[in-house]
C-alpha cells in the first residue's frame, strides 16, 4: 500500500467520521462545526486529486460562505430546540435501512464498470485552462452566465422571503 493510499484512507476516515458526527450530533452548533470539518476534509480529498483550485474553492465557497450561513441560521433559531430532546424523527431506523440499501445499490452499480486504473499524468496549467473554459464561447460561457442569473435570483428571493413580516401596503 503506497503512501498516498494511506493518506487517502486517513482522509476518508476523517471525512466519514465527521460526516457521521454531522448527522448524529445532538448539539446543532457542533453539527455545523463538524460540517465545516467534513468540507475541509473534502478539500483535502481534492488535493489528493491534484485539483488545488477546487480545494481552494471548496474552502472559500463552501466553508467560507455556505457553512457560515448555516451556522448563522443555527444560532438564529437556536432557542426552539434544546439539546436534550431527540434530534431524529420516528423513522430514523427506516432511514438507516434505506440508506444502506441505496449504498449497496450504488456499489453494485459502480462495480460493473471497467474504470481507468490510474490517473493521467500531466495536469499542469489547469487553472488557466479552467479560466478560459469559463469565458470561451465555445466552451462554458453560457453556464457561467446563467449561474450568475441563478445567484442573483436566489439572493433576491432569499432577501424577500427572510424579510420580517410587514403590514400589507
Amino acid at each position: 500500500m503506497s503512501g498516498s493510499q494511506i493518506a487517502f484512507l486517513i482522509i476518508s476516515a476523517l471525512t466519514v467520521y465527521s460526516a457521521l458526527m454531522v448527522v448524529t450530533g445532538r448539539n446543532l452548533v457542533r453539527s455545523a462545526l463538524w460540517l465545516v470539518m467534513t468540507l475541509f476534509m473534502v478539500a483535502a480529498v481534492f488535493t489528493t486529486l491534484d485539483a488545488g483550485f477546487m480545494a481552494v474553492v471548496q474552502i472559500v465557497v463552501y466553508i467560507g460562505a455556505i457553512a457560515i450561513l448555516i451556522l448563522f441560521a443555527v444560532m438564529l433559531t437556536r432557542k426552539v430546540m434544546n439539546d436534550t430532546e431527540p434530534q431524529t424523527n420516528d423513522n430514523w431506523w427506516m432511514a438507516v435501512i434505506v440508506s444502506v440499501v441505496i449504498f449497496v445499490g450504488m456499489v453494485f452499480m459502480v462495480s460493473g464498470v471497467s474504470l481507468p486504473a490510474r490517473p493521467a499524468s500531466d495536469v499542469s496549467n489547469q487553472i488557466v485552462d479552467l479560466g478560459n473554459a469559463f469565458v470561451s464561447p465555445n466552451q462554458f460561457i453560457l453556464p457561467f452566465e446563467v449561474a450568475s442569473v441563478l445567484l442573483i435570483a436566489a439572493l433576491i428571493g432569499g432577501i424577500a422571503i427572510a424579510m420580517p413580516r410587514e403590514e400589507e401596503g
Binding site: V23, T88, W92, V98, S99, M106
Partner: peptide, 13 residues
Amino acid sequence: LFCVGLYGVLARR
C-alpha cells in the same frame, strides 16, 4: 458520504 447525507435528510428533525 452521499448515503450518510441521505440518512440525515430522512432522519433529522
